[in-house]
Design a binder for these strands. Structure first.
Length: 478
RNA sequence: GCCUUCUUAGCUCAGUUGGUUAGAGCAGUAGACUGUUAAUCUAUUGGUCCUAGGUUCGAGUCCUAGAGAAGGCGCCA
């Protein structure tokens, strides 16, 4: 061992490499044994498919074979041949087997059977060895790659915005404090003695910094971790998640919507084209789970149908006021079926309202624009009606709000007066204001939650299952 | 943070109206079997019924509190 080139499982199951003796390494998913022959299903994470390894028991030490169980890591040198079995076209006839690490079958928690996602979440350190999580993480990678691809092809620059931030004026949620002070000693909030000499938090958004860069580089995007200390206990919130935030000079709200729609379609199409095996595995798994559910809770479209649906349909665009009228006159509202009635212009839509618009009324992705200014952030551009701002939310089935964005207020006076109205410290954000003082231009941007997109593409119902090591209230394991 | 539900073998789950020694499938272990594919067949090990109190002649089952989890809601991406 050592001289042979290591092949990946995907190289063999997709197209036979016809060298004589080749080397494969991976983890055993399953062993099947009869009197004269044993079969191993070996996976190395390169594909959802397993490599079938055939062992002639008369030619290999039996002690060695007995040490091999589900979870064992090994390297095998052997020959690729056409498979006699029905589930694969090629298989590896083992000539030499090296056990790298045994896995005690009495204590190894993964079995060749279905495990609940809750159980696998408790063993996140091992769950990437399962079919489902292998598929999810390969798809997650494909999406990340496609994001950079998309922006690069459009001339966007990737900007790293800081993770440590001293601005707490963004209003995007509760923040995690960062300090080197000894909290055991109960120092009375004297941040002058702290590492940075001031109060510092983990970022809740890279937007304000990205705006600075866009107002000089034209088109930029950030793609980094985001931290929210909200006590959110839902299947679509994390305390640490990854967000993509493009920020574009010379883009108005319509350009912004066009970009958001083009991008989502590109990313979904990319996974349809490049993750076929993983998607069809997830689709089948979802179908099996659906069969256990009552008719009403089942998906009306299967996974790839839902993805194609996004790619092939123009997103419905409408103003908040139009959405408000539709909801106000909707059957569930008139019959008092909503928990939150739609009666007064200016209310914030609840997720039941968004789901009605997306899943019942339009039956496709929806972009709502021009929200009432009093329910939106200070930096959003005020419309001429003096009531609304150029904000947009892209709503998807199941996951809800997948993108939130706006045209930014580029007029110094308007921005300043809005900050005063909303009690945002102009002293703290002097640098933000200066971009409007010197060479201001119209510009726009939005935030896309990576995990929510991965959730939609994989059909996973809990966001904690689309990030390798989820952080949520009361949970920071692994 | 609020509401609802759940917690029984390593995993997935049964467990009747409160009643003797708590069950199944899978995994594990032992064996059988000429190429299997969540292999099959036979036998078999394995339990603090989440924790702490309480009611009762008797609690896996009923009550109270706590812990953890899931789903829904709010906050949002």
């Amino acid at each position: 061992m050592g001289i042979e080139k290591r092949y990946k499982v995907i190289d063999i199951v997709e197209a036979s490499k016809k060298s004589n003796d080749i080397l494969i390494s991976g983890w055993v998913r399953n062993k099947r044994q009869s009197k004269n022959v044993a079969f191993l299903s070996v996976n190395d994470g390169s594909t959802i498919k397993n490599l079938q390894v055939v062992i002639d028991l008369s030619k290999v030490e039996i002690d060695l074979i007995e040490k091999i169980n589900t979870g064992t890591s090994l390297s095998i040198i052997g020959k690729i041949v056409k498979s006699q079995g029905r589930d694969q076209s090629f298989e590896l006839i083992a000539h030499k087997i090296y056990i790298l690490g045994v896995a005690d079958p009495e204590s190894y928690p993964l079995q060749p059977k279905k495990h609940s996602f809750e159980f696998l979440r408790d063993i996140s350190h091992l769950r990437s060895r399962t079919n489902t999580f292998g598929a999810i993480f390969r798809i997650r990678h494909a999406i990340i790659y496609a994001i950079h691809n998309f922006f690069n092809s459009k001339g966007f620059l990737n900007i790293h915005t800081p993770i440590l931030t001293s601005s707490d004026a963004e209003g995007a949620g509760e923040m995690f404090k960062v300090t080197t002070l000894d909290i055991e000693k109960k120092i009375k909030n004297n941040y002058k003695d702290d590492f940075f000499g001031k109060e510092v938090n983990l970022t809740v958004s890279g937007q304000l910094n990205a705006e600075l860069a866009a107002l000089g580089l034209s088109e930029v995007y950030t793609f980094g971790p985001t931290f929210r200390a909200e006590n959110s206990n839902t299947s679509r919130h994390l305390a640490e998640f990854w967000m993509i935030e493009p920020e574009m000079a010379f883009y108005d709200i319509k350009d912004n919507m066009d970009l958001a729609e083009e991008m989502l379609k590109y990313l979904v199409k990319y996974t349809l084209d490049n993750c076929k095996d993983d998607l069809s595995f997830l689709e089948k798994a979802e179908g099996d789970r659906d069969k256990q559910k009552p008719m009403l809770e089942r998906q009306s479209l299967n996974l790839t149908e839902r993805l194609k649906f996004v790619c092939n349909n123009t997103f419905e665009r409408l103003k908040y006021s139009e959405a408000f009228e539709i909801l106000k006159n909707s059957k569930p509202n008139k019959k008092n079926k909503f928990d939150f009635p739609v009666n007064e212009w200016g209310i914030d839509f609840q997720s039941e309202h968004e789901r009605y618009l997306v899943e019942k009324h339009f039956k496709k992705p929806v972009i709502i624009v021009d929200y009432p200014k009093k329910i939106k952030a200070f930096y959003m551009r005020q419309n001429d009606d003096n009531k609304t701002v150029a904000a947009m939310d892209v709503l998807f089935p199941i996951v809800g709000e997948i993108i939130g964005g706006s045209q930014r207020e580029e007029r110094y006076d308007k921005l300043l007066s809005r900050m005063k109205e909303m009690n945002i410290s102009e002293k703290q954000l002097w640098w933000y204001l200066e971009t409007r003082k010197f060479g201001t231009v119209i510009h726009s941007g939005f935030g896309l939650g990576l995990e929510r997109l991965v959730q939609f593409v994989t059909g996973m119902t809990n966001i904690r299952d689309v990030i390798p090591f989820p952080r949520s209230p009361g949970n920071c394991k692994f």
